[in-house]
Design a protein around this nucleic acid. Sequence first.
DNA 1: CCCCCCCC
Length: 614
Amino acid sequence: MNQLSSGVIADIIEGGHPDNPLVQILSMKRIPSGSQERWRLLVSDSQWSCSFAMLATQLNNKVSSGEITNNCIVRLDRYVCNMIQDNKKVLIILDLTVTKSGEEVGGKIGEPVLYDANKSRAEQQQPVSKPPPPQNQTYANKPINNNNMAGSGGTLHQNGPGQRNFPATGASQARTPSGGNVHPIASLTPYQNRWTICARVTNKSNIRTWSNSRGEGKLFSVDLLDESGEIRATAFNEQCDKFYDMMEVNKVFFITSATLKTANKQYSNLNNDYEMSFNRTTEVTSCRESTAIPTMQFSFVSFDQLETLDKDSIVDVIGVCKEAMDMSSVTQRSTGKELKKRDLQLLDSTNREVRLTLWGSQAETFDGSTQPIVAVKGAKVSDFNGCSLSTLSSSCFQMNPDIREAHMLKGWFDNGGNTADTINLSGQKGGMGGGGPGNFKMFAEAQMEKLGTTKPDYYWVTAGILLIKKENCLYPACPQKECNKKVVDMNNGLYRCEKCNREYDSFKWRLMIQTCIADYTDSQWVTLFQDTGEALIGKSAEELASLRDTNPDSFQSVFDAPALQFYDFKLRCNTEMYNDRQSWKNTVVAANPTNPKEQNRRLITEIKQMAGQS
DNA sequence: CCCCCCCC
């Protein structure tokens, strides 16, 4: 008995859409195109084989998990067969069920012939001694031939007129407003010039402006999704104005003609090798009957998995907002810009809590009073305080989304989850009053890990103070509250601040203490600014300044107390370019006298870990 | 043609 839907491949290529056909996967080939994994399959119905089948990327895990292997039999639950360009066709498998494993089947069923779409069914290659294959649904003959992936161009040509559209399930059955063919997003390449997709907007940025050496302008971008895949689209300037208002999140649109280019994976975590820019020929129209276009898909990572991920990983998470901190402001170091932020404490059913930071208007408007379920697609993992999360501008943030995982989590939380003991992944306070073990390192470790080379890193170190530079530890600073820039004495009773671009009749003293500190592996020059500096010497900057003028001896002895003492330093380390040379900067953001008991406890824990006793 | 994604 034939276990396959013999002859069905010819039907599909010629425009038919049989339900749930059974085919065999003879071989798989990873397509060498960028970083995005894509699988091209050689499938067979035992009579015909087809080498231009592609697996939708959301099914890639079935390959990596070993569920799909050579020789397995699959049922095509959803698929589309589309013209992609110049009469070339692609069969995209959107959903499938493995009905028999490759191991169980053991080998190729029948002797399938590679179906050549340049020819009619009657003209297909035939076994010499047998009559032509049937023109209808009787799947009797088994033409003989050998074939493999390498032997075919991977594309077929159109059979003839009247076959431009190949109906499929769902949205792919839809016609464009002008009656044309709807293309799957997964089939788009830069080498086609006119196509229409039907896609849902799953995320939309604000309008952003830029200005650089190449010019200036404005833009916004959207994430587009259909059942075959996803892609990012960006609209610049003219197109930005034209499409910004109409392209609302969650709505579905026909989009015709845009420029495709290779996506820069550095800036996008969408599952596509390409991204599109809208251009003058781009048309966007609303699609009302759009139930077949999927809504945004999350791929949630549970909190107990977060710590296993590399920092800067991008993840989808869902959690109960157990607590929302007040909104606060921080100053962006690179630009001095004021940023609004709000930290949330999220909890999931693995009894882990993790901190999520929201930014900007999201931070301002967030209301956590009802302990909502929070879902984020594309949050960034950081190793701050152990492990924490932050949204990016590309993140999609949803409150109480109407999805299964949200309802399950809510049920869990309301039925005891809210009182369970939890582990706080973001709870490492680095030895600061309570909290778990901190992110302590030796200097040699920090160097080995190249901390601070690409972006600022924070870590704790227990180190002794070898030397404090007393010269230039005080500087006259701008008297403005938020400005601490050094002022220039104009020698006329006025002090000029370059940052504020004005002169003042007074200044304030600020501390900037350079000190050399050492642990058992190395020494480092580090800088303490105002607050940490004042805490270290036990004097305010103003006190120190007047001491320097009135009592040089006691000024000197201020620095004797901390010298040769051990402190737990929290360091912010990074590199900056000075005259084309990379130089290290270590800023002390906290300095606490080392508590030997706590230090020993930490060391014992480490020793036990190294000995495998924990 | 953007591409910053921050702070402790």
